[in-house]
Design a binder for these strands. Structure first.
Lengths: 222, 222
DNA sequence: AAATAATAAAGGATTTTAACTGTATTTGGT
DNA sequence: ACCAAATACAGTTAAAATCCTTTATTATTT
């Protein structure tokens, strides 16, 4: 039976007191882990990270002086993609969470989290690669939908009729208007009319503008 | 103390046998729920749904004849936004899952799910409004990151030089090539050359195709 | 039944885009 | 110094897109 390696952790947070507190909590919930180093911010991390000190997981703050969490995770992705990042931050802004998730962090915890959940998160990340709470998932799903609900507001969409929507989808391609006309069983001149109508309704001046509008407001998917 | 209302459910799935099986499972895991109706597809749902038959949750398939899950959820969002949708589908394609989540479905289960999890999902949706499994969350987070990692794969991007990238950004607008040339302090003929080069490198045949490529692979943001 | 609105389509003119071929000039490498 | 490449640009045609005006045919409303 394989000997379980101790979990190697590193902490990046500019608040020394919080860092020390976090370490003592980790020791309590996880009896087989090792803190390989602590850093005050991204710059400090770059200095302290080398072949001997590569951790499995880095617990990372977002707001830090000199080099913040976003820049640090980007740098880690480029230079040490194997290291997993668990964000531990006060920041609950949806945009920040989504931005971090886009950067590929494996979890995102609020600093007021229960010690046990911290342990769960670390184990889950080691075990299955990530730990996303309902809170994070909720934010994520909400941010996905935000785009669509914004759209409803956006005028042009309601003004379009079904044929025009069909045409718009086809216009977001490399077909010429003649080919679109053929596909829709309509005269090219009718297509001309649809285009003119949509230019007016969507407030665009070219087919490129129209196509980008359609993508922006989710009327066609790429 | 308030009397707990029974959970009102409806099923939309074109496979009668699966529907019936699902109902018997629901009866087993949930002793206080009522099936208000079943439908074969979205069209059928529209006929069967009225003031007397408004369910709390609709269990919805994705692939259905005549009117599929996407169209049906869109219609529900417009006409009965209070009804929560739980997708129960064989489809595990990331794009389908993300598209459904964008439409605001409250959960997404695979058809091979354990009966107990079905019960958990229904209760979670009634209780806190949603039920997203790790599988779904994983797909979601992955799709967020995909755009960036896909780029690396997609050849065209590496082949472009800086001037061509600048041009590409400007081409994703309603400027004519002459106007772009002026903005870049270049001859329109040089712009012609950039366009021809990019058409070749990105494998597109028109400015629309080029603009959509740029958006798809995150080279320009809308 | 008449007026109105929506849909489909035509003619004609102009601009923009696209495709192809070719030529100086510059730049990096050996 | 010489070769190869990348860069900037020109000419020519053809095709596609854009703009504008007008008309015939259905639906819808009054």
């Amino acid at each position: 039976m394989p000997i379980k390696q101790p979990m190697r952790l590193a902490l990046v947070d500019d608040h020394t007191l919080f860092r020390k507190g976090l370490i003592s909590l980790i020791k309590m919930v996880c009896n087989d882990c090792e803190i390989v180093f602590e850093a005050d911010n991204g710059n400090d991390l770059q200095l302290k990270l080398n072949k001997q000190t590569i951790p499995d997981i880095i617990l990372m703050d977002v707001n830090m002086p000199f080099m913040d969490g976003f820049a640090t995770v980007e740098w880690l992705n480029k230079n040490y993609p194997q290291i997993k990042v668990l964000v531990v931050s006060m920041i609950t802004k949806e945009d920040s969470i989504v931005r971090m998730l886009k950067l590929g962090v494996k979890g995102y915890l609020c600093k007021d989290v229960e010690p046990n959940e911290l342990g769960d998160a670390l184990n889950a990340i080691m075990d299955k690669g990530f730990y996303y709470t309902d809170f994070i998932t909720g934010k994520l799903v909400h941010s996905l939908q935000k785009i669509d609900t914004q759209n409803e507001k956006h005028s042009g969409i309601r003004l379009m009729n079904d044929r025009e929507k069909d045409f718009l989808k086809l216009a977001c391609s490399e077909l010429t208007y003649n080919q679109i006309a053929a596909q829709m069983y309509l005269s090219p001149k009718t297509i001309d009319g649809y285009r003119d109508a949509l230019f007016d309704k969507l407030q665009v001046k070219s087919r490129v503008g129209m196509a980008l509008y359609a993508v922006k407001y989710g009327l066609v998917q790429l």
